[in-house]
Every structure is written in C-alpha cells, then in structure tokens.
Simulated assay, not measured.
Amino acid sequence: MRFDIPLPDDTARLEALAHLDGLVKPVGSLGRVEELAAWLAAAHGSMPPRPLDDVRVVVFAGDHGVSDPAGPHGAVSAYPREVTASMVRVFLAGTSGVTVLARQVGARVRVLDIAVDGELADVPAEVTAHKIRRGSGSIDVTDALAPGEAERALAAGMAVADAEIDAGADLLIPGDMGIGNSTVAATLVAAVLGLPAEDVVGTGTGVNEAGRARKVAAVRAALARTADRASDPLSTFTALGSACAAATAGFVLRAAERRTPVLLDGVFSCAAALVCAELAPEAPRWWLAGHRSTEPSQAFALKALGLTPLLDLGLRLGEGSGAVQAVPLLRSAQAVISEMGLLADLA
C-alpha cells in the first residue's frame, strides 16, 4: 500500500520567516508563535497563510475487548464499557467535554460509531454509516480485527477526511471515545517502538496502582502473543489495535495527502498516527501535536514523530478536547503574520 504525500511549501515557509523577522518586534521575540506561523504558511502554500475559520473535529468511537472486566487480566478502566455508547449520545446532545470546548472556538464536532459494542439504533444514520464491527477483540488473547477489517477501517477514515475537506475544513482534529483506549494506544506504541509494557502504561481513566498493574499485564500479554509475527502497519492494527485506531490513521493520512493541517489530540490519536507514519513517513509534516497527555505512551509517540505539544495542561480526557484548546494559538500565529506592522514602515 503506497501513498503520495506532498511536501509542505518550503518557499512559503522561508518567505514567512523573512517576513516575521521584519515585523515590529525584536527578531524571534514571539518564539514558537513565529514557528507556527511559518508552519501554516508552508502547509497552505501561501504567505500569509489563510485564516483557520473552519475547524472540524471527528470523534471515532469504538469499544475494545480488553476492557471487559471478566477478561483474564480484569478491569483496565475505571469505567464500564457501556459508557462508550452512552457518550455517543452525549456528543450528539452537544454536552460532552469536546463539544463544549469546541463551541468556544467555533469548531464543529462530528461523532462516528466505528466499533461501538452497545446498541445505538436510535442515533442518526450518518453516525453509524462507517461502522466496521461491534467492538474489537481483546488484544491480550486474540486479534483486535478480522482479516480485511483494518483496510476497511483505514478506508473509512480516509473517506471521512475527504468529506470534511470537501466541505471546506481548514484544520482537522481527530477525537476518540472508547473505554480501553489508553490500553490499546499503549500497546500500539510499545509494538512499534519496541518498548516494554511497564514503560508505556499510565493510569488512563484514573485507575489506581492495582488497575495500572492489570493494564501492564494485559499489554505485556498482547505483545507476547504477537512477538513472533511479521509486522507491518495494517497487521499491527489487526493484531493489537482496533477499528477506530485504523480509522483515525486513515483520517490523518488522507489529510496529509490533501495538504490539510491536522492537530493531533491525546494518546489515542498519537498512537494511531505513529502506526500511520509507518505507512507514510512524510505524513507527520502535516501534523501538529495539540497538547501533552499525562499518558507516558504519548510522549514516546510524539518523540518518534518529531512533534512538540503546543499545550501542557495535564489533560487526559481524549475526545479531541486538548487539541481544540490549541486552536486559538494557531489562530494567533496566523493573525501575527497577517496583521502586524513592519519595522520598515515605522516613521
């Protein structure tokens, strides 16, 4: 599977940097804001970069078998699996964390049932239009997906990105919802980077030390189960990921193909992006990290992707909630390079 990822416009980036040095301020005095302004210019291929008026969040929802408290390693989350389906309805009602925060920056939020195990017969048809399966397999004892499902999920995520970009998106944010997400994310990061389970597992939804020990055991078992198998990105999603992780990867991959900036969110979207980068090594040039999660596996993923988070607020909610809070920073960078005066124009 091959992807044609264009490079950001280096000419626009250099023009932006030169323009920034000539603004009414000491050279480099706006620090990372200037870096972001130049990054946006390169992504847009224009100087100045366009305003980020149309920001779109897509929340990929799904359940994971590893979250079943009756499984061999017990509960890995502080919440039951039924919460995933309930949260889909909360997103639709506009009262979830990310929908509240998105309203503050004028971003649109869309939720999709990719692999929710609970019953969602009462939700709009467009929510379930890309559903791959009901729940993913428990990765500590079996593969997450059946043959061919990773490819279908990747394609679904790409189709969703196409729809959002065709509708005018200036910036895309992948969100996530699923009990057990942080366990799956930790496993993906450990598998790609060859890390031990105890280094990548955090507290997720807020489990205590006993809960974290159960998570470590589940991740360790998943890695051991697949240790002798050939590895490629799609087989990694099949064996150790989930349908919503593969869909997230397709979403951020298509954005890169179509020259659309992406703000990654927390540990789940970063883990999916890390696997995605194995498919398309140039894709991370089109991504920024919205915030630093408290989950240790995200730090490993971001280092491997070469991304430095814009915010560090101690967040671990997911949903895209951290990334949307970084949108004003990107808009500030665009405003600075577009609207500040030049030293050469001073009387």
Rank of each mutant, 00 (worst) to 15 (best):
M1R: 14
I5P: 03
L7E: 14
D9W: 10
E15T: 13
E15N: 11
A16P: 09
L17V: 14
A18M: 09
L20K: 08
V24K: 13
L30E: 14
G31Q: 13
R32N: 08
E35I: 10
L36W: 15
L40T: 04
A42C: 04
A43D: 01
S46G: 12
M47A: 06
P48R: 05
R50G: 08
D53K: 13
V58W: 10
V59H: 07
F60N: 00
F60V: 01
H64V: 02
G65H: 07
P69C: 05
A70C: 08
P72T: 02
V76I: 13
A78K: 02
E82V: 06
R89Y: 09
V98K: 05
T99K: 01
A102R: 01
V105L: 08
D113C: 09
G118Q: 13
A125E: 15
E126A: 12
V127L: 04
H130E: 15
K131G: 04
R134M: 01
G135E: 00
S138E: 15
P147C: 08
D176A: 05
D176I: 06
T183E: 03
A186F: 08
V189W: 12
V192W: 10
V192E: 15
V192A: 14
L193V: 12
L193C: 11
D199Y: 06
D199E: 15
R220W: 01
A221F: 03
T226H: 12
T226N: 13
A227D: 09
D228F: 04
C244Y: 14
A247H: 00
T248G: 09
G250P: 05
V252K: 01
R259H: 12
L263R: 10
D265M: 05
G266A: 01
V267A: 13
S269W: 07
S269C: 03
V275G: 12
E278A: 15
P281R: 02
R285D: 03
W286C: 04
W287M: 11
S293M: 09
E295I: 00
A299T: 11
F300R: 12
F300H: 15
L302V: 03
A304P: 11
A304H: 11
L311H: 12
D312Y: 09
D312R: 11
G314Q: 05
L315T: 06
L317P: 07
S321I: 08
S321R: 10
G322C: 10
V324E: 00
A335T: 12
